[in-house]
Design a protein around this nucleic acid. Structure first.
Lengths: 161, 161
DNA sequence: TACGCATAGTTGAGCTTTCAATATCAGCGG
DNA sequence: CCGCTGATATTGAAAGCTCAACTATGCGTA
């Protein structure tokens, strides 16, 4: 804590712009999905992950890994999604501790009908503001940050609990 | 909804990297602040905004604008911060509807002691991963996104209620 | 003055997330 | 086979956020 090495002017500007922009973008996406599809972004991402999985189902652990979510959060979320009829649970035959989450027809239908509006909002909130070069740059930067932050992080790899 | 104009490969990569990176970064910051300072990031930002204001106080509306928060969220947050002894409320003499939020000594002390750890985590999670050029680029891109998204947004400018 | 409407801020209910248990089961060494 | 350790998943309570009222006040206008 001695000499905390403060932020330079460039860093300060970047950090504040980052904070502001990410907040606005995520709020827009949340609002759009909640309004048009009746679910928060986190649940949409769960449905996407399931829809891209073999047979539309995944083990809870894998699903948690894909969505970078804690097991606890996922459990609650799946409970809610099950209640909505978008997902069902299936216990794993080979490992009695395990459970699969399976996308239902209704869940897939909801996802399909929600996707265009969501993609539209992603464009409107983020991509449309940028040139093709900026999109590529942002992708590289974010990929770097993602790898770096996950690697050097004490709490992101080793989940909760 | 006809022809939703899907994402290109570049856009898809960028979007997914963006989602992953922003999620990891915000989780790291949240955890660090919660662990070391006993408050979520949103509350820390409120304290920062107050500490930078004249006399350490701001009208609720202005504070909401600075922190890009809804009035409702801010009300709840200030109630909590007041309960912690970090902020006090003062009713506005010239407009009896209005209220000021004022940073207390204890609040400032908490902020000062939390700041180095927070800055360290900002570096560790985001800045250290990037070259100086990338930091500058990211700043420009995020500034663009912030302006664009706030401008063309139906729900970000006109707050809640 | 009285009416109407907009503004500032608060409140309560419902929902999601987090954190700390808890229960169940797999794998392994004795 | 028994017991131990670690992994899988769930649960309940507490906290924060969102949404929709609601209160109280300012302000323009007839």
């Amino acid at each position: 804590m001695s000499e905390p090495r403060w932020l330079t002017a460039d860093e300060q500007r970047t950090w504040r712009a980052y904070l502001a922009a990410t907040k606005v973008v995520s709020e827009r996406l949340d609002r759009q999905l909640q309004r048009d599809a009746g679910m928060p972004t986190a649940y949409y991402e769960i449905l996407v992950a399931l829809s891209e999985a073999d047979g539309g189902e995944l083990r809870m652990s894998e699903l948690a890994a894909f969505t970078r979510s804690s097991r606890s959060r996922l459990s609650h979320a799946i409970a809610r999604l099950e209640q909505n009829g978008w997902v069902t649970r299936r216990s794993c035959p080979t490992d009695k501790r395990g459970a699969f989450a399976t996308l239902t027809e209704a869940g897939l239908a909801t996802l399909v009908s929600a996707a265009p509006g969501h993609v539209g909002e992603v464009r409107a909130a983020l991509l449309d503001a940028l040139t093709a070069n900026q999109v590529r740059h942002l992708g590289e930067i974010m990929a770097t940050v993602g790898e770096h932050a996950s690697a050097g992080c004490p709490a992101a790899s080793c989940d909760d609990d």
